[in-house]
Design a protein around this nucleic acid. Structure first.
Lengths: 418, 418
DNA sequence: CTGAAAGCGCTTACAG
DNA sequence: CTGAAAGCGCTTACAG
């Protein structure tokens, strides 16, 4: 049986490496020592099932499906179609396991999914068969039969930004443990790209979505709604009470760091930002509000739609100082911009924070270590991922989360640069 | 027809948001304006197909399938089993499209996959039906029927390291364009985690794998071989001629940067490294070889298995200087360590490169911008991803790549720090 | 060029 | 607790 299965296995259809195919040989030659069938009983059962007609075929013979090969065979019709034999996939199926364990496929299915439903002996035989045959469940078949994919679509605007990588880690830690797979999509801050990714993902029938930054596009909202699947929004707090969201107030965070600068005595703070995604714009709103509340005019801004980077930070600092030589503090929309600004100050001989204060946003891993270290806003991005995933999980399990919106807050982290 | 489909659609099984479910209402109420069927002819066709028995059902009525509801209704048998009616999935299927377009499901399938095989008129009707019904193909069904998943498993040791994120971008750009999806696995430099991820991925029956850093684990090699699917190894050059690899010689790169330091006149270079994965160890070998070739003793090393980071770089620098105050240059195994070392020098008042030279590895985006900028080895990680993906694509399409191993090389990038 | 049949590998929904 | 039937939504392999 074992031999047979191995022999039937799908031949390598992809080109064999021009050089000696050592790996392939290794596999083929390798005896299945760990998987040896232990008892004679089991192998006899297997042999019998190979020699007899399959059980299911019997009932078909009693009431043949019209036009089937079997029906024709019985009437002796010469006009029968050739049976459409597919080339064997070579995959070990639940049926193989069932035969090997001398149970029905259903029992195998249960033993795998809900072991408690199956008698210990049967379960043990199934488990042994799984190991012996190297059975790997087919995700496609499971999805098709159960209408649940155990896949979650995750849409983030960037993977270059460490912030979202940490969010992914949080998602992974929560949903991965629950047996979910992810389709990770990098939307590159582009709404067109996001729409495209969404379409691809929809074919995979994800059980849910975890998304960032879809704020403004109606097309995307509609597509998500059409998927009829729960969606949790990350990174901000929705104004819409019908949406599930986990995040914090970007605007309040922008307000807080600006207020901090003002409290420290800086009177002419500027704001530099790249990307200009909705979250950035809300931090900017916070910056402007704080200045106005202090009776100041929020006129110092250098904004660019380019992607954020350390290099860009060096350039934006220069632009800011050219525009406003009296600028005494800069709120950088992200720590990478802040680091670039700091580097540029070092190059120009500007002392930080004495001559110019620099504040960042996000608290990236390196910000605590620069000289001077960077004053910033610490954001709970791992937690955002983890709790958003947890919220989705609850929804998928039919429990209603207590709140539709979780505010994880942020922390002001004063260091040396401001 | 349209209405009917919408009506049958799967109800939201997940809990409705406690607050007004505005999004849901919006979807339900929203008329399908963009999809309005334009011509009277088409709608007539639709209506007809609702009123008549569908073509395919006709044959079923003539020769009922045993046990089906239809058969029982006609025979009036009292002993019939209840038909096992699943709750409808609400999904628009290829059969729905077929009815709408008045063709067979096969024609829809062909029109979608190989439009040239279908007559223009039929194709047009199919395309219209797809839009009208909002048909989304089922990946699970396709995979099950075709035994090809169009999914590729990608295993990288870290997502925190910008290096691998860029590799992912290269893979994305190549394989994404060809319609493949990815299962992105972060192995966290752990072989156990890698084995676990591999098992999960196998259930998805990926068409191929793109992996990094499996060098030493036989368990993983065997699992990959058992998958009977092509595997391309990234980031190094395999010594095994039966493996597909795209990368560069880590050892030569380590040798080159060390030799550069020696040529610049540094006589007492040290090596600091974290993570200690196989690639790191090969760079170290290069470092040692270069020193020996120059008649020097490679005794200055500070190694730690901890994950690499800027913060760690500050600490390793201190350790190195405590161990060897006469150290005059440091080769840091990664640019993040180099940046940390540079920050620490600034803190300690050590002038770089005058008192101590610092060299990094990988050329991360910020390395060009620090003050001083960091001398490093520029590595082709986007290209590694792109070309590895391309190689895999060729294999999957049945073409044999010309070479089983592509050496993308590396570049020495001298800047200010060494 | 088009279509009817069968089947991919599971689970659901029954019955016992 | 266990199993036979049907079906999930496609494509393959035929036949015409």
């Amino acid at each position: 049986m074992k031999k047979n299965l191995t022999g039937d296995a799908k031949p390598a259809e992809w080109p064999v490496n021009p050089n000696t195919s050592k790996a392939a040989k290794r596999t083929a030659a390798q005896p299945d020592t760990t998987n040896a069938v232990p008892s004679g009983t089991v192998s006899r059962v297997i042999r019998r099932s190979k020699e007899q007609a399959p059980r299911h075929a019997a009932s078909a013979a009693v009431a043949p499906v019209p036009g089937s090969a079997l029906a024709d065979a019985e009437t002796g019709a010469a006009t029968r179609r050739k049976p459409h034999r597919r080339r064997p996939t070579g995959r070990v199926t639940i049926a193989d396991v069932a035969k090997h364990a001398n149970v029905s496929p259903m029992t195998v299915s249960r033993a795998l999914k809900n072991p408690a439903q199956v008698l210990p002996e049967a379960r043990a035989r199934v488990e042994a068969a799984v190991v012996a045959l190297g059975y790997v469940p087919s995700h496609a078949a499971r999805t098709l039969a159960s209408a649940r994919s155990r896949v979650v679509g995750v849409l983030v605007p960037s993977l270059t930004n460490a912030v979202f990588v940490e969010t992914l880690a949080g998602i992974q830690d929560c949903l991965g443990a629950a047996g979910y797979q992810f389709l990770i999509g990098n939307t590159s801050y582009s709404s067109a790209k996001q729409t495209e990714l969404l379409s691809m993902y929809l074919t995979h029938a994800p059980d849910g979505f975890l998304v960032t930054g879809i704020d403004e596009s109606d097309a995307i909202r509609e597509r998500l709604a059409a998927a009829r699947v729960p969606v949790v929004h990350m990174y901000d707090l929705s104004r819409d009470p019908s949406e599930w969201t986990v995040g914090f107030s970007q605007q309040n965070a922008g307000y807080a760091i600006t207020q901090y600068l003002l409290e420290r005595g800086y009177r002419r703070p500027g704001f530099i930002a790249a990307q200009l995604d909705p979250r950035t714009m809300r931090r900017r709103t916070g910056f402007r509000r704080a200045l106005r509340d202090a009776g100041l005019d929020p006129d110092l801004e250098v904004l660019t739609p380019e992607p954020s980077s350390v290099g860009l930070g060096t350039r934006l600092l220069v632009e800011m100082l050219e525009r406003a030589p009296d600028c005494d503090a800069i709120f950088c929309n992200n720590d990478d911009l802040a680091l670039g600004a700091l580097f540029e100050c070092q190059r120009l001989g500007i002392r930080v924070p004495d001559q110019l204060a620099i504040a960042g946003f996000n608290d990236l891993p390196s910000s605590a270590w620069s000289t001077p270290s960077i004053t910033t806003v610490t954001t709970p991005r791992y937690q955002i991922g983890f709790q958003a995933a947890q919220m989705l999980l609850q929804i998928l399990e039919g429990k209603t989360p207590k709140k539709n919106r979780i505010d994880l807050g942020f922390t002001l982290t004063p260091r040396q640069s401001a």
